[in-house]
Design a protein around this nucleic acid. Structure first.
Length: 901
RNA sequence: GCCCGAGUGGCGGAACUGGUAGACGCAUGCGACUCAAAAUCGUAUGUCCAUAGGACGUGGGGGUUCGAGUCCCCCCUCGGGUACCA
């Protein structure tokens, strides 16, 4: 008896592919052939290894890579690791193990797991963002950003040197400045610059925290230290310069419409006006941005963000206490929490007033947390008549409401946001909104009280981190405050060896940050060039940096002269960039926007040939699983959670009336994306061991459509395993292990079924509908069960169809029926159109839209004949006899509908 | 809060362009093989009423249409993102 020996088969073929470098993409490909660049979003090499959610996308891209090879494409299908980042650093802080060691161990383990799934990556192109010869070029790109500015007129990045020589020549004031002053001016232009921005500062940990690392009580997730909002000098990247292009060029890419919409909303272009409100008896001006300058006459009060710099000046002595208390309350909350609670309107009157520039009225100035410092100017004019949030605020605090747009007839709601003529608005009265806007903008401009403007929700990219395990900035700070970038020949600036990776903590919330690199040996920190002393930048880059351009490095990963060879770049990126990029929709905005931004800069500077990096994007769904949170709202390791009877949560999670505990403390259950955030990962190794990776591959694809999220449940896995065992029995004799494939003629029925299967599987491959492709193969396999011998003309095409999905079994059977070569590059079968045709088709007959019968008709039967046949059917006749015919409908090849009364 | 998705039998899902809802798989029932079990093969399986047959049915409510899982409006629930998790 030979039961499907998956272990030996899978080991043999994985070794074969590795030894023969079957899937290696030549460094110099034959460029006369079409190319297909299929890319996965690369993983973080976590300590727990791959979870079953990762391979969902990887198996899909692998199937396509294998399919495209069989279709004659040069395929580039690489894999790498986004290996800088917090967990390795955190582990280092806690256990004293260098992040490099942890990272290398984790990568080795994940490589083993990836290879064990039979993924056809070009293993010679594996890279990690932590490789010195990779981050050398990440730093190089940073230098390009620093040394460039955005020419808004020409809409392109240019070398800053061009701007300097222009200013030196035409601007005498600039020419006369000291180097330090010039630096300050240029910082206003560079694509990389330093600015002070508000952050969640945790002095106890000596670092900035993400919103998710801050608990509801304003404490740090780790260590429970207090967290403060404070300004910090940070590296920023001027992504806002590209806002328009990032929005506009979405038109040219084949991405899910929802992702494009999210990116457009994230960029958040809005047209409107800046309006200046004067503060009486002072020189202070409060500038606001509004999308509705036409409603200025209805601005009855102003609201500033609690952190707005003018608040302290405007606040009267009587209000001082209330204002400070409110500011303190708000400071401990994240922007997100402020927005979630936005329905509950809170705020405090500053005691100060401003003058409405349209009508000269004195209006009160409030502070409230629904106005965020990070958007617009951090101040708004409140127009309750036309804005819901303002209306609600005005109701709570008894502020005046003036309608300045005539609501439509019968309108009895609160704020009116629809169209209508202006009222109570002086010179605007009677004008429709669009006209009123432009009239008001010209008036403001004439009066020097404001101007028309476009703003974006998008903010510049905060690019520095107070961490060790990231790319060092190739930046030197001179004693005189002058900044210099490290010479290209000196790159990479490698991380110094260290034993203590903690940033310096402090009890003083205002103490300057001392990131881990401040503990680096002086020999690293301080360098001397031409007699001048410099200190290295002590911050590092965020994890986003390395993932911003890895798709380019895969094209030419060994190049030590430039980041990518131009000819290779042109070939692999032709046709609009990466041909297919698969990853989770969680990257819809940040990663994809950052990568597009860098790509556009590289395009402007002439290093890449396409405007966009990723021509086609596809989001795979999530594998979801139960997760658990403790009383502070922090996710705990799901595998260590037990119920009240001490049973592991994974065994009872579907049961009702369970209470869950983690280390003795009660936790709450929720359901969501499998991964590190929710700490609910399940690995693929166990399934591999028990059923083999061809089963795992098929199972993950058979779970449902690729873009749908679905729960992880191993119960159904036997189904696809039975399918593979059935295929094996069809091809290999159970007793003597010999091939059952023979050079005999196939029946016309079987041949017809095969070609319909070829047709179905081929179109399913094209539209990435792998679950239905597998269903088609299962159906066809059932038809083979009764056959003693499988005709070769059936067997070979069938194995080729199976090959991308279950490559180990396909290769094994392919070789057992006498083929000497791997099928990895064998041509994909083509369905014979003649065998797909049939003379008769089945048509459903409806009466008044309800199906009553189905009839066989010739494919080309004329309408009238079909109606006659339909009426002749007894099941139809029963429903139409005695009734008047109103209308007969025939959709050829699909349906008959007889409408009667 | 704001932005983006999803919701179809007991379960995972199919139905690609408005045209027979439930392909395929799991689970379950029955049968064959077997001393027996496993494996395998065959067969049935949306719900309700029932004799032929019929009514209902794609999260809920309304609408458009000869015909709606699919299009439009309102609502509910769940998931993703919300800028330092990536």
């Amino acid at each position: 008896m030979s039961e499907y020996p998956f272990k030996s088969i899978e080991a043999r073929w994985q070794e074969f592919w590795q030894k023969n470098k079957t899937f290696r993409t030549p460094e110099k490909p034959d460029m006369s052939r079409p190319k297909y660049y299929v890319l996965d979003m690369f993983p973080y090499p976590s300590g727990v290894g791959l979870h079953v959610g990762h391979p969902l996308g990887y198996i899909a891209t692998d199937i396509l890579a294998r399919y495209k090879r069989m279709k004659g494409f040069n395929v580039l299908h690489p894999m790498g690791f986004d290996a800088f980042g917090l967990p390795a650093e955190q582990f280092a802080v806690e256990h004293g193990v260098h992040p490099r060691v942890t990272t290398e161990t984790n990568i080795a383990n994940m490589l083993r797991q990836l290879k064990a799934i039979g993924l056809s990556y070009d293993w010679d192109r594996v890279l990690a963002t932590t490789d010195e010869d990779y981050y050398r070029w990440t730093q190089w790109i940073f230098v390009q950003l620093y040394n460039s500015y955005y020419d808004a007129e020409e809409e392109t990045a240019r070398p800053i040197a061009e701007l300097i020589s222009r200013l030196e020549g035409s601007d005498s004031e600039f020419a006369a400045m000291s180097p330090k002053e010039k630096d300050n001016v240029l910082a206003g232009y560079r694509l990389a610059y330093i600015a002070e921005v508000p952050v969640n500062w945790c002095p106890g940990l000596g670092t900035v925290l993400a919103n998710e690392e801050v608990t509801n009580e304003g404490k740090s997730e780790r260590g429970n230290y207090p967290v403060y909002k404070r300004g910090l000098r940070q590296w920023m990247l001027r992504i806002t310069a590209y806002a328009d292009r990032l929005e506009r060029d979405l038109e040219d890419v084949d991405w899910p419409e929802s992702v494009k919409i999210m990116q457009r909303n994230w960029v958040g272009r809005s047209e409107g006006a800046h309006v200046d409100f004067r503060v009486p008896e002072s020189d202070d001006i409060i500038r606001v941005f509004t999308t509705r300058p036409d409603t200025l006459f209805g601005a009855t009060y102003m609201v500033l963000a609690p952190e707005h710099p003018l608040v302290d000046i405007l606040t009267t002595t009587g209000q001082q206490e209330a204002i400070s208390a409110y500011q303190a309350k708000v400071a401990g909350r994240s922007d997100r929490e402020r927005m979630i609670d936005a329905k509950e309107k809170t705020g405090v009157f500053t005691g100060g007033y401003a003058v409405n520039p349209a009508n000269g009225e004195r209006i009160p100035i409030w502070i409230a947390d629904y106005v965020l410092m990070g958007y617009g100017t951090g101040a708004i004019m409140a127009v309750p008549g036309q804005d819901n949030r303002d209306w609600e605020f005005a109701e709570v605090f008894n502020l005046p409401i003036i309608r300045t747009v005539q609501p439509s007839e019968g309108y009895d709601g609160k704020a009116f946001t629809g169209n209508g003529p202006a009222i109570n608005s002086g010179f605007l009265n009677g004008l429709e909104i669009d006209e009123a806007k432009s009239t008001m903008i010209s008036w403001l401009e004439n009066q020097k009280k404001g101007e028309g403007t476009v703003t974006y929700r998008l903010r510049d990219w905060l690019f520095s981190r107070q961490r060790y395990w990231g790319e060092p900035f190739p930046v030197l700070h001179g004693e005189d405050g002058i900044i210099e970038t490290v010479a290209e020949s000196e790159l990479p600036v490698t991380l110094p060896p260290m034993e203590d990776f903690r940033p310096e903590s402090s009890d003083d919330p205002d103490a300057p940050p001392r990131p881990p690199l401040s503990r680096a040996p002086e020999s690293w920190r301080i360098i001397s060039i031409d007699g001048k002393t410099f200190e290295r930048e002590l911050n590092t880059m965020p994890q986003w940096a390395g993932s911003c351009w890895y798709y380019l490095r895969f094209i030419d990963n060994k190049n030590d002269q430039c980041l990518v060879d131009p000819d290779l770049e042109k070939y692999w990126m032709s046709g609009g960039g990466v041909d297919l990029y698969i990853g989770g929709v969680e990257h819809a905005v940040l990663h994809l926007l950052y990568a597009r931004f860098w790509h556009k800069v590289l395009f402007d500077l002439g290093y890449v040939s396409t405007r966009e990096p990723f021509g086609r994007l596809f989001n795979q769904g999530y594998i979801q699983a139960y997760a658990y949170r403790d009383s502070r709202g922090i996710a705990v390791d799901a595998s260590a959670v037990v119920d009240q009877d001490g049973r592991p949560a994974v065994e009872v999670q579907d049961h009702k009336n369970r209470i869950y505990f983690y280390e003795g403390a009660e936790v709450t259950q929720e359901y969501g994306k499998m991964g590190k955030s929710l700490k609910n990962a399940v690995g693929p190794d166990e399934i591999n061991e028990r059923y083999g990776c061809d089963t795992l591959r098929l199972y993950e694809m058979y779970l449902g459509p690729l873009d749908a999220s679905k729960p992880w449940n191993t119960r159904d896995i036997v189904g696809v395993n039975r399918f593979l065992r059935r295929v094996w029995r069809n091809f290999v004799h159970e007793e003597n292990d010999t091939s059952l494939v023979a050079d005999i003629e196939a029946s016309p029925e079987l041949m017809g079924a095969l070609h319909k299967t070829i047709d179905r599987v081929s179109s399913d491959m094209e539209r990435m509908s792998f679950n239905t492709a597998i269903a088609a193969l299962i159906e066809f396999t059932s038809k083979l069960v009764g056959e003693d011998r499988i005709p070769r003309t059936i067997a070979e095409p069938f194995l080729l169809l199976l090959a991308p999905l279950a490559p180990h079994m396909a290769e094994e059977l392919w070789s057992r029926i006498g083929n000497k070569e791997s099928l990895a590059y064998a041509p994909w079968p083509v369905a014979d159109p003649i065998l797909l045709q049939s003379d008769e088709i089945k048509i459903a007959v409806q009466v008044n839209g309800k199906v009553r019968a189905s009839i066989q008709v010739p494919v080309d039967a004329p309408k009238e004949d079909v109606f006659v046949l339909a009426r002749a059917n007894p099941d139809v006749d029963r429903h139409i006899s005695g009734k008047t015919s109103v209308r007969d409908i025939y959709v050829p090849g699909r349906i008959v509908n007889l409408v009667v009364r």
